[in-house]
Amino acid sequence: MRGAFARVTTELIDTDERVVALLGDIGVFAFRHAKEAHPDRVYNIGILEQSTIGLGAGLAKGGLIPVIHTIAPFLVERALEQIKIDFAYQQLPGNLVSVGASVDYAALGCTHHCPGDVGILSNVPGVQILVPGTAAEFESLYRQTYANASLTYTRISELVNADSSDVEPGRIEVLRTGAQACVVAFGPVKDAVLEACADADVTVLYCTSVQPFDAATLRAHAGSGRILLVEPFYEYSTAPAVLSALQGLPAAIASTGIPREFLRGYGSVDDHYEAIGLTPRGIRASLDRLIDG
């Protein structure tokens, strides 16, 4: 996805003179050609995330399209108030593109983890939150949204699915249907979910858009009364959207995601996912518990 981000943004800078890239001293090498061609619209802005968001909002006020890119915890958590006030409250459009989804920077430790991004930004009205599962999905979602009227947060993940879906903001894809439960896979855990549910009589939905959320499709497939959310971020991050979608329906809801604790180990993403059970085996265990009550 990182490669797709640099490639597509470079193309957008070439073709849309409104696009301005603000890089938080990361990914700079990938933008070297764009920087050479358009030095006035590609900036290694430095390591000052709060002011970078404010500056981006100022660019948006000036009619430009900011693309702000850095590591997720610094982009979302450090600069949250700027996201909330400078962009969202003022209803300004723009693009926040993070790297380091959840525990992608496993070996760097908790300062560089950010499993809270989806839940945190869900509390900021008007922000689109996109969680693509492949590079092609990233490209599609990014192209669809980069110039729209919203602030859009798009999450680059190191983990990717094998195959891409035809994705769009606000749409859930129905991968298969079944009777015993409805399993919702968010972004890059689709393959793990499909493997976990291979012989289960369950519906599997694939969601790459947390905000806007396709409430109608979830509601239409909630007849079993059992919903399992598989979230490659903090567990229950999407619960507000899910609960809102299921208003009035009887449903038992469970989540397999990243537990709300500091994951103090290092290693790799796979090491962490194995430890917390965000694996086909762990997902299947959660599903069985949900079905068995």
Binding site: Q50, G54, G58, L59, K61, I85
Partner: peptide, 18 residues
């Protein structure tokens, strides 16, 4: 507090770019 100047920097830069 502390939000107006960053926005102003962005608006000034936008004027330069455009």
């Amino acid at each position: 507090l502390g939000h107006g100047l960053p926005i102003g920097v962005g608006m000034a830069l936008a004027k330069r770019i455009t």
